[in-house]
Amino acid sequence: MELIILGVVVVLFILVVVGMYNSLIGKKNDVENAFASIDTILKKRYDLIPNLVATVKKYMEHERGLLESITTLRARAVSGNILPDEAITINNEISKAMGGIMVAVENYPDLKASQNFMDLQRSLNEVEEQLSAARRAFNAAVTTFNNAVEMFPTNIMAGMMHCSRRQLFEIPETERENPDVKDLFA
């Protein structure tokens, strides 16, 4: 009799441990998955940059420097051999440069009114909106993961698995100050 009870307790214990282990792995993978999605959308953004440069180049004589710098930044971003941290910095700079271009467009009414540019601007808006959604999804996944890492009883399991808190994706100050592309459209 006692042996049976002991057996049941052991089996239950194993089940709980396996459950906690699997849920932690699942949450960790969700975080990685969400990070990969940000990457996918960033690639979409990189693809739009040559279009943007080609469209505005004809009009913008005085902003050559700005266009060249965004082209170089893009080339670095797509080169492949960069670290995640570096990718974030490059993208922040790309955001800044794109903001600059959008402000400059104000000085070229013909460009602003051209169908080509308006279509492009729609695509850019869409990518930015998707990027923001992907960031939020990443942050939600990280929050769930961090809760599991820090809350009892999964924190014991996390400690044994050497899981530690992950950083949230924060939007840098410079990007927040960027002129909103949407406002320019109004």
């Binding site: 969400a34 999605s37 998707q130 923001s132 959604a133 992907a134 939020r136 999804a137 942050n139 939600a140 996944a141 929050t143 769930t144």
Partner: peptide, 22 residues
Amino acid sequence: NMEDVDFEKEFVVYGTDQIEAR
């Protein structure tokens, strides 16, 4: 799970895609 606390209190969101929902 949405990050807007007030919204989360009033509503629950289900979806086929975490990013698309956001």
